[in-house]
Design a protein around this nucleic acid. Structure first.
Lengths: 248, 248
DNA sequence: CGTGTTATTGACCAACATCAAACTTAGTGG
DNA sequence: CCACTAAGTTTGATGTTGGTCAATAACACG
């Protein structure tokens, strides 16, 4: 429907970094049919139990995957920026085992599975890149398991800020040491396995210690090196290539 | 090197269930070169930081993936039975972001990446099955994130027992409601993000309430239905096909 | 300006960790 | 077959982290 969606271009570039794509492959990707939807904060792009026939590319905004557990509480599983496809796995896994929600107003493009599959058959490099993208997803999940299982609140939060910063910087969404994190403290709590109150206190501690600064939802990292050490953060698991680490 | 390794056969069967394989594809898989290694408990099959040129198939025993965090503590990320390949992802992710260790004496077969890649080129169904296997891995990680983030010690443990039981039953490793779980309470603690002492107490609670029975490392599930409810367990995420749920 | 959401604070509580010791079990060598 | 040992399990006492509840303050938006 549309050409020249910059986030689609970013997605193609990121695939190309994972597995070099021929020019025709890139062209074919940029001609995918996009069903574009504008989303409000809180809108579920996909729901647990669905059997989707499309995957979604985030065009604008900020998206998370989550599960609801017994007591009705929510656990956030991952965050996704513009230019990412959070549910590529639904190509192969019929039924969604979690939901995907917008954390901020934005736009997403649904990509038909049929076309994606056709592209993979035609261009094996695309299949490789898709697979590799889902593997990196898995690597991030593993790091989150370690984060939730073995780190204190302060460490977890520091780690999350490090991951957010590195990923946003890689996507060109940072402004120096600052970046927009469109999350309420309650959502942060759902990602970190903490209560909202404790998130508030932990955040204050990070600020008190001069590690970060918050101006509304805009966060600035004041002492990257110490933040990284506290959060026990090592960007290897993001598999971003050379730019894995960071100089303040 | 060897023919007729039953665990290899089981692995091929499980791939075949994920994506139907032609007879020649199955034959080709069964002719893979196997570098068989006998492992002691505690042995690292693969180490974080490695750039492996092989993936490993568990032939016998019980294996886990883990990460070491800042304080030197270990977080277990997943368990793997005989007939599973815990590090298929290393086909595409150059550097290991975690380690894999034997939790019990056993045997593993290392499969050369080169041969696996050749098979994927020759038989696209194999590539599909491999990919899908790694996606299921990811689904299990997601459930573990929810488990660690939002459930109490008792719920987590119940959930882990449910997952272990269902997976083992699916692999034909159960004896009625019983199964061998070759884990110390300390390892259980490393999987559940708890202390060993608290694992002990929680285990006692499960026993006191008539949910499970432990005879050494042999566990018997006494009240599946209640255990499942307590652990908030729904086998969908295991993507095992029809036999997802269970009748006591 | 209201009005609803989000952030912050305080008081109190529960879950789980830590430490240290005793007890049990499974191996091992004599 | 027994004694010895090391690993794993169990227990008790105590400490800490983080949760819960409830109220207030700060924003954001129409």
């Amino acid at each position: 429907v549309s050409s020249l969606q910059p986030p689609l271009q970013r997605y193609i570039d990121s695939l190309n970094r994972l597995s070099p794509l021929a020019a025709e492959a890139r062209a074919a990707l940029s001609n995918l049919t996009l069903r574009i939807v504008r989303v409000q904060e809180g809108f579920d792009l996909v729901r647990e139990g669905d059997k989707p026939a499309e995957s979604c590319l985030v065009l604008e905004g900020f998206v998370c995957r989550y599960k609801i557990v017994a007591g009705g509480q929510r656990q956030i599983l991952s965050f996704h920026l513009a230019g990412e496809v959070p549910d590529l796995h639904s190509l192969h896994l019929e039924r969604m085992d979690h939901s995907i929600a917008a954390m901020a107003p934005g736009r997403v493009a649904y990509l038909p599975h049929g076309e994606l599959i056709a592209l993979m058959h035609k261009f094996p490099e695309i299949a490789d890149a898709f697979w590799k993208a889902t593997l990196i997803d898995g690597a991030i999940f593993r790091e989150w398991i370690a984060n939730l299982g073995r780190r204190t609140a302060l460490q977890r939060m520091a780690h999350l800020f490090c991951e957010a910063f590195v990923r946003m910087r890689h996507a060109g969404l940072t402004d120096g040491q600052g970046f927009q994190l469109p999350l309420t403290q309650a959502s942060l709590a759902e990602a970190l396995g903490l209560s909202a109150v404790h998130v508030n206190r932990t955040l204050q501690q990070l600020r008190r210690e001069g590690l970060i600064e918050s101006r509304g939802r805009f966060q600035t990292i004041l002492d990257w090196d110490r933040l990284r050490r506290i959060g026990d953060f090592d960007a290897t698991y993001l598999h971003l290539g050379k730019s894995g680490d960071h100089e303040a």
